[in-house]
Simulated scan of single mutants.
Amino acid sequence: MIELTKTGIDGLDEILNGGIVKDSTTLVSGNPGAGKSILGLQYIYNGVDMFDEKGIYLSFEENQEDLREAAESIGLDKWPEYVERGDILVYDKRELLGEHDFSSSLDMLLEDFKDSEYERLVLDSLAMFNLFFDDERERRTYLLKFSDILKENGLTTLMTNEQGAVFPKSEIGLENYLTDGNIYLLQTPTDSGVKRYVWVAKMRKQDIETDIFPMEISWGGITVHDNASEFSMMNHGDSPLE
């Protein structure tokens, strides 16, 4: 029987039919402002707050203070307390990018990865992670190595990635194939503002809902609604990742 890790995000676990496969790596893609970092913050916070599962947050884009303010701004009020207690372990851009090469950063992280107390991890984001590498071959080698290390150490991981196109048939990178799951956060402008959607395009070992569902970001974070949106895979073709 497949063991699942619940995100604790309203509506998302229902689409996933219970959660994310334990020890897997899921890519969360979207354009800037789509809610990728918020989803990551919620995933780590809910692990501690709802399920007594400790988490690690790797941020290549923000510092500790920015992450705390972002968490508190959406109602994740106990974030500072959980960090202080060690239930949430944060490595920010100053620590990660300060090592200058990924081998040094990886050595720094391995001790905590091997700590069985930590069960969840977020890497935010792959765009900044890629700055470590001079060429595509090196990037692929280390991404494969890093993904294997996460799984071997029992971490159920979300990685965020910038995605320009709404339906990314022409922008599918290596990351999409290395990961066990692909979640897209979509947003479209309207006369009354921005409409947001979530599309779970792929999850290995799971039966999932592959329609596109409306979501909103408000106090408490992301909520996914159960009525499939006007976007549908019937209109936009089959998933490009199958």
Rank of each mutant, 00 (worst) to 15 (best):
L41A: 04
Q42I: 13
I44H: 03
I44R: 09
N46K: 08
D49N: 11
M50H: 11
M50Q: 14
M50I: 10
M50D: 07
M50R: 14
F51E: 11
D52K: 14
E53G: 04
K54A: 10
K54V: 03
K54C: 06
G55A: 06
L58T: 00
S59N: 09
S59V: 04
S59I: 07
S59Y: 07
F60L: 03
E61T: 12
E62H: 05
N63E: 09
Q64E: 15
L67G: 01
L67M: 00
L67F: 00
E69N: 09
A70Q: 14
A70I: 01
E72W: 06
L76A: 07
K78W: 04
W79G: 03
P80G: 12
P80V: 07
P80D: 08
Y82V: 09
Y82E: 11
E84K: 11
E84L: 05
E84V: 03
G86N: 01
G86M: 02
D87T: 03
I88R: 07
L89R: 07
V90L: 12
D92I: 07
D92S: 14
K93L: 07
R94W: 00
R94E: 11
R94P: 00
E95H: 11
L96V: 09
E99V: 12
E99L: 05
H100N: 14
D101N: 13
F102T: 08
S104Q: 10
L106N: 14
L106A: 13
D107I: 01
D107N: 14
M108K: 12
L109Q: 07
L109V: 04
L110D: 12
E111W: 10
F113W: 13
K114T: 12
D115C: 03
D115Y: 04
S116A: 10
E117W: 09
E117V: 11
E119S: 15
E119W: 03
R120E: 06
L121P: 06
L121N: 11
V122E: 00
V122I: 05
V122G: 02
V122K: 01
L123N: 15
D124S: 06
D124I: 09
S125L: 11
L126M: 06
A127N: 15
A127Q: 15
M128G: 10
N130T: 02
L131P: 02
F132P: 08
F132V: 13
F133A: 09
D134I: 01
D135A: 09
D135W: 00
R137T: 01
R139S: 14
R139W: 02
R140K: 14
T141Q: 09
L143H: 04
L143S: 05
L144M: 00
F146G: 02
F146N: 00
F146V: 01
F146M: 05
S147R: 15
I149C: 02
I149R: 13
E152R: 13
N153D: 10
N153C: 09
G154L: 03
T156R: 09
G164Y: 11
G164C: 00
A165G: 01
F167T: 15
P168E: 02
P168D: 04
K169N: 07
